[in-house]
Each structure stands twice: as structure tokens, then as C-alpha cells.
Design a protein around this nucleic acid. Structure first.
Lengths: 161, 161
DNA sequence: TGACTCATGTCAGCATCCTGACATAGCGTC
DNA sequence: GACGCTATGTCAGGATGCTGACATGAGTCA
């Protein structure tokens, strides 16, 4: 709030954050393209490997897309045999998604490519600097979560996961 | 179990980076919506205030969109009287874009809203931690650039010093 | 001078993702 | 058991951004 005209990009953190994110996105796209994979597809597979049996909505939240978009993606992945879903929901309407063997293979290749990108990204940072970056990113994400500032929607204080 | 070489989301920096970027994007959209403005529009105006007379392609690079998308946006902004472009290029094909008085007013309001978001984002970080985050983000962005010669820098921290 | 390369602005078509809306199933309360 | 609330899956429509391609003008070099 030094002046009313412009954000000082020298001291701003938001712009470098977007810069880094854009650079990471571009590098990941370049790394995944030869494998015939996109970032959203990879993210979905990676999340599925970490949490097998996730629902479409769970995967959507983890991949930062809407559940509609994730559902379209899952249909494609299912058609290609990378994931599998039961024809009927075992309980409620939730369709648990599973990674197939083929899906695991594709994920392994993609994951290696993505790891290489991350290694390159962190090449010039010491372990301490990486830890500091991790800490700062988590703090920023936490501070931006809607909740402890507006009473518009709450109901998340007493939610023991 | 079936996760031998998967990227660990807990120790990864890429995922928190995307998380923070997504949270920032959502917070900025929420802050700009009441002003009838989007992130891309704000970015364009902000860049224009920093570098008056930029070309459409320059603005596109700074806002992380293609020059086609930026041109569509500039046509809308010009139609609404926020920016102005000469009918003919003074030199070559480059049409230098200028911020109008109305554009400056809109930018001032949007900039204040965005600054509030950034303040909230950095609320839990000490100045040292903020500086460390800035350093890490710049190093990551630099390391991910395709060419190590950094030939094309777009509105970066290129202060003379 | 002439050819080559690069960047810019622009047009057309396509891909991706989102917003809005609806029906349904679990959960808790009364 | 009935009601309200939340979350999920799904369908339709629209907004936004991108890829591909073209012509033009500037700069470079033989």
C-alpha cells in the first residue's frame, strides 16, 4: 500500500509464484508430451496411486479441476484401460476408481519424467532452501484457505476427517 | 504397496507449488469478482502500468497467455475505454498500448484488492521467510527455463543495481 | 541490393474447462 | 418414519484459451 497505482513486482511474491508455477507447468507438459500424457491425466493417475479407490470428486479436488471435468477424464482413462470403475456403486453413488496394471505402467513412466523435471527445478537450491520453500508454500496455501476470516461458510472446525 | 516409484506428495515441492498457485488464483478471483474484473484483465492492466506502450505480444508473455488471447482481451479493454491503441502502427507492426484514465482508476481498485490478498497470503511468514520464498521461487523459475542463457526476460527483476 | 530470419498482428477452427441445474443416496435431527 | 442437509454423479450449454496458418515489416548479412 505504498501507492495507489501499481503493485511493486520487485517485492511481490504473487507474481514470482505464478511465474514458477507457469514454468513448472510448461516443463511438465514438455516432459509428458512424448509419453502421450497431459498434466491432468498424470495428476489423476498419481493421486489414484496414492489413494486407491478414490471417488471422482476426490480426484477432482486433488487435481484442481471440477468433478465434471474429472469425470470426462476418467471416462477416457477407463476407455483406454488405465483405470477401472465398477458398473454399479457398492455403496451410495460413489464409484471407487482403481488403477489397472496398464495404468501403473503408464504412471511409472510419467512419474519418472516428472521427477526429472522437479530435480531440475530444485537443482540450484540447497536442502535448507528447499525446506524453506516447502514451509513457505504450505503457509501461503493455508493462509489463503477460505474460512477463518469470513463467516460466509464455516462448518469445518469440527470435522475430524 | 503398488507404489514403488511414485512421487511422494509429502516431500514434493511441485505439488505444494501448484497448491499455492491454485489457492492464490482462487483468492484473486474472489477478490476481483466484485469489481467485475478477471485475473487476466487485471494482469494486463498491471503490466501496462509498469511498462506503458507495451505491445500485445509483450503483454501476452507477461500474463502467461498467447498473443492471440491477449489481442482478444485488448479489443475488449479498448472497447470499454480502459486502454487505447493507435489506429496505425507508428513503426513496424507494433501497436503500443496505453492505459487511459479510466483504466488507471479500474487498476487502482483492482490493485488494492490484489494487494490485500497477498498480504493475507504472507500473514504467517516473517520477512526472512518471505525473502527465502522469493529467492527459491526465482531460482526454480530460472532453472526451468529452456535456455540457460536467459535471452528473453519478460518484466522480470531486471533492476540495474 | 537482395535474401534470409525473426517478431508481430490477425484470422479460423478446435480443445479444454467451467457454470448451472437436476436427481439420487447417505447422515443427522426431530 | 419424515424432514433437511450435504455430497456425489450426470447432462447441457457456454466461456475461455490454445494450435495452426498467413501476410507484413524490421533487422541482419552476404
Amino acid at each position: 500500500m505504498s501507492q495507489g497505482g501499481a503493485v511493486d513486482l520487485d517485492t511481490s511474491v504473487a507474481y514470482p509464484l505464478k511465474q514458477a508455477s507457469a514454468a513448472l507447468r510448461a516443463a511438465m507438459e514438455d516432459a509428458l508430451r512424448p509419453l502421450g500424457m497431459t498434466i491432468t491425466r498424470y495428476s489423476c493417475l498419481e493421486l489414484l496411486a496414492q489413494r486407491p479407490g478414490s471417488s471422482s470428486s476426490d480426484l477432482a479436488r486433488g487435481a484442481f479441476v471440477t468433478r465434471q471435468s474429472m469425470n470426462v477424464l476418467l471416462q477416457a482413462l477407463e476407455h483406454e484401460g488405465l483405470v477401472s470403475r465398477p458398473a454399479q456403486a457398492p455403496v451410495g453413488k460413489v464409484l471407487p476408481v482403481q488403477l489397472t496394471a496398464v495404468g501403473h505402467e503408464h504412471l511409472a513412466r510419467a512419474s519418472a519424467a516428472v521427477r526429472a523435471v522437479e530435480v531440475r527445478m530444485l537443482a540450484d537450491l540447497s536442502p535448507d532452501e528447499q525446506a524453506a520453500a516447502l514451509h513457505a508454500l504450505r503457509a501461503m496455501t493455508r493462509a489463503l484457505q477460505p474460512g477463518p476470516g469470513d463467516a460466509s461458510r464455516v462448518l469445518e472446525e469440527d470435522r475430524p476427517s
